[in-house]
């Protein structure tokens, strides 16, 4: 399995660290209040869709450009379907929210 980093190109897996499901979002509230919505917190911290197939997930290119990436990968085949910088994903989401 090799990941094509948008900044560095195709690189070996040992340059990256895994951080799991990229579709999870912290419970609302700014700043989020601990204790408020305990169920929502438990869900965010512990529950996962854990799909068999395409999975959006966070990888950190620690031994390269040190970018956080959102990688879409098929968990059945390890095929990498898409790679983008997490910061761009966040910006796009914010723009959608503002629009």
């Amino acid at each position: 399995m090799r990941i094509t980093c948008p900044c560095c190109g195709e690189r070996g897996l040992d340059e990256f660290s895994y951080r799991g499901d990229a579709t999870l979002s912290r419970p609302a509230g700014d700043p989020p209040l601990p204790g408020a919505g305990a169920e929502a917190w438990a869900e965010y911290v512990y529950l996962r869709d854990n799909p068999s197939g395409p999975h959006r997930e966070l990888w950190y290119h620690g031994a390269g450009c040190r970018s956080w990436l959102v990688v879409t990968r098929n968990t059945r085949t390890h095929e990498i379907l898409d790679t983008e910088r997490a910061v761009n994903v966040v910006r796009a989401t914010r723009k959608d929210a503002e629009a």
Partner: peptide, 16 residues
Amino acid sequence: DGYNSYAQRGNMPVIE
């Protein structure tokens, strides 16, 4: 290996 997988096979970094 440390990433979600249903593939029943792994990769080189962990073998190493």
